[in-house]
Design a protein around this nucleic acid. Structure first.
Lengths: 236, 236
DNA sequence: GGCAATTGCGTAGTTAGTACACAAAGTTAA
DNA sequence: TTAACTTTGTGTACTAACTACGCAATTGCC
């Protein structure tokens, strides 16, 4: 068995194959009862007109998470967003310019809260349901992040990050139905959220609806943080 | 907006920073009521005596999953194992030889079924609970994979992959207790697995135990595959 | 004022999880 | 051989969570 000094380790590492590494951000939002994704039109002529995720190469001494936050900020101007690493995609032929590995990061955010400060390459919110073929393997990446989201939203009340501050229970249910792709019983849905005891009644009502207006609620983020361990805990 | 030809894309990709990429395999097993991990002693002198995951660099045109299977086979001789990608670790200083990104893959397997065909660097099964500081950031990686396992095992009956073909309910419970780090009520535990209706009674009994012997069961893998969608399905 | 749409509340039945008790089967050792 | 000990195997009563519904009340619109 051969042992290596630090110097030897350096030259050992130097001999190994290197690959370009990128981060792609899958940012979900919700508007008009539809799940949206933040996308741009691809720069590459071979992907002309196709939609692409917000992505960029990771810098030499940049932490992966930092790279994701940097990219989001550079491309959209957004800060104060939480990103989660979802999965690595590394098929040798996934990028036309040669082998590129990409790490998918995902986030959910309130469209009203995060204005798009930068307007390049038709950066905009696109309907998740209407997405067809995208640049690279980005459709697959978005779909995997969507599955991740479906799972996460059933374990944690993450949906609130996608809604305006004040929302009706109907809006909340629309959100869950849009993400999960199912229809839910209205009464049981309310009961579930009522029993969680994380909604604050604002004593305000919906405006400009052509039917009986619903109450508006706020999510009690403070209380949620305290209860969090309940969701993480073991209940086998 | 500048459009790029394929050729231009190639040269564009070539200008970006590249990093060495590795895969590390976290293989869990179970023996003598203890959760084990398959590890080796580190090659590197600065990590002398410390334990290390099974890892290697990803080859130039190698798919990431393929790399994980190759590494496992090269280092242990094992085939017929399912590996799951868990997370990427990429802190700039995580490797003493320079920046190296690693992708952690995880698996669970039956120690009896998978003999260690290769014996280098003290390759062996080590108690998970007794692990202390390891080479690189490998302790952190193992811990993250352990958390992943705790979650997965509560959503899918994966535990059976760690047990011998025929096992008693006590062994099954020991496994869950070892992985989850909690003690469970014996009667409720049995009831839970009985209600899942995935155990086959072999009509055999435990041998060589110094108390009343328990029945031996087999896991009904075929039936599980059919029921799988139930676990994956939406139950909101 | 009547119709349509939607909110808000409630109840009954089922399923899943928790907290227990106790007899039966085997080993060990006086 | 039998009493003490350990562990298995089964059961019951209670509680919490989920499901499938019914129906009156509020608003907009014609």
């Amino acid at each position: 068995m051969k042992k290596n000094s630090v110097k030897a380790v350096h030259s050992l590492v130097d001999t190994y194959p290197k690959v370009p590494l990128t981060v792609d951000c899958v940012i979900f939002g919700f508007e008009e009862s539809k799940l949206k994704v933040l996308l741009i039109k691809s720069d590459l002529s071979i992907y002309q007109g196709k939609l692409s995720l917000l992505g960029d190469f990771v810098k030499n001494n940049e932490d992966l998470d930092d790279a994701a936050y940097r990219i989001l900020k550079e491309r959209t101007g957004m800060t104060n967003v939480f990103l989660d690493q979802v999965k690595v995609f590394g098929k040798p032929d996934r990028h036309p310019g040669g082998r590129v590995i990409t790490i998918a990061y995902c986030s959910l955010l309130n469209i009203q809260h995060h204005a798009l400060n930068i307007h390049e390459n038709e950066l905009d919110w696109y309907d998740y349901e209407s997405l067809e073929d995208m640049a690279f393997d980005h459709k697959q990446i978005v779909d995997e992040c969507h599955s991740w989201l479906q799972k996460r939203i059933q374990e944690h009340p993450l949906g609130f990050n996608l809604l305006p501050d004040k929302f009706s229970l109907r809006e909340l249910q629309n959100l869950y139905e849009a993400i999960l792709g199912v229809s839910l019983d209205r009464r049981n849905f309310r009961k579930k959220f009522a029993s969680m005891d994380l909604l604050i009644d604002t004593n305000e009502m919906e405006q400009d609806v052509s039917h009986r207006p619903g109450k508006l609620y706020q999510f009690n983020f403070t209380k949620y943080e305290k209860k969090k361990r309940k969701w993480i805990g073991i209940d086998f």
